[in-house]
């Protein structure tokens, strides 16, 4: 039986797709057979972030409507063994998603995969609801910024009431906070919410903190999940997060500003 993990946030542009691609790739690198599903029907982007946009023939909606089978629709990653992508449809609308259809596909994938990563669209409408409905665990992607934190809290409410686990009175969906675009230097100046501020408010366990990093944009430019850039801090931070997702105990890195010279430190007094 596969573990179903939804990557969600409520707010758009916080890094759901980047995180889905990175976490999925990280799990596959460790030998787990993993599929990443794009639930953003009508605005598909996972294929672009993962660099397989020209290989999409059949998509998730085709499988749901039984116009194609899973073997035809799953795109096998060319870099990492065990990694597969199920693209969203670009032409249909999100109302095509329904619990029966999505459930059937997830159930079929569960037979052969270890992890199913559901990349949720922004918002709290049907696509987001479908992405979270079958989840065993949830990664809530949050920027250290007021609107993102508020939306994350809203999503936590939905996870606790609208998922299959909630509806059927099973154990609650396991929640993980993934902070992205974190800038320790701005936190030190009091210009940005800190990890502690956000964990105080949301009160869920911290999976990882991804520092603001130029490598995230260059990774998406080239269609390589940033976790493959093992030199970059963002890539390393995602690798730590994957470790924690699998139950490893890893220190949180990149939370402090890089060591600066003595005079630069003095400069902080004036800020």
């Amino acid at each position: 039986m596969a573990k179903v993990i939804v990557v969600t946030s409520g707010k758009g542009g916080v890094g759901k797709t980047t995180s889905s691609a990175a976490l999925g790739t990280g799990l596959a690198l460790r030998g787990y057979k993993t599929v990443v599903i794009d639930f953003d029907v009508g605005l598909r982007n996972l294929d672009l972030i993962m660099g397989c946009e020209r290989r999409v023939v059949y998509d998730f909606i085709n499988v749901i409507r039984q116009e194609s089978n899973l073997n035809q629709s799953l795109i096998k990653d060319k870099r990492v063994d065990n990694l597969y992508i199920l693209a969203a449809s670009q032409t249909k609308d999100k109302d095509t998603l329904d619990i029966e259809g999505v459930g059937r596909v997830i159930n079929e994938l569960s037979q052969t995969f270890d992890f199913i990563i559901c990349d949720s669209p922004a918002g709290i409408e049907k696509g987001a609801f479908m992405a979270m409905y079958f989840a065993d665990e949830a990664v809530i992607v949050t920027n250290p910024e007021v609107s993102s934190v508020r939306d994350s809290d809203r999503i936590l409410g939905l996870l606790a009431s609208k998922t299959a686990r909630a509806v059927n009175n099973r154990d609650a969906v396991k929640e993980h906070l993934l902070m992205t675009r974190y800038d320790p230097s701005r936190v030190a100046k009091g210009e940005m919410l800190s990890v502690e501020d956000v964990t105080d408010i949301l009160a869920i366990p911290l999976l990882g903190v991804i520092p603001e990093s130029e490598s995230v944009l260059s990774a998406s430019n080239s269609g390589n999940p940033v976790i493959l850039d093992t030199e970059s801090k963002a890539g390393q931070a995602y690798d730590d997060a994957v470790g924690r997702l699998l139950g490893e105990d890893r220190m949180h890195r990149f939370l402090e500003i890089e060591k600066k010279g003595f005079f630069q430190k003095l400069g902080l007094f004036r800020s």
Binding site: V149, A188, D197, I201
Partner: peptide, 26 residues
């Protein structure tokens, strides 16, 4: 350094206060 700077209210602490109120209410 943090100790000295905390005398002045930072925008991050304003953000946290506002969030705690609205989130509790919601």
């Amino acid at each position: 350094l943090d100790f000295f700077r905390n005398n002045r209210k930072t925008s991050a602490s304003t953000a946290k206060d506002r969030l705690q109120i609205i989130v509790a209410q919601e």
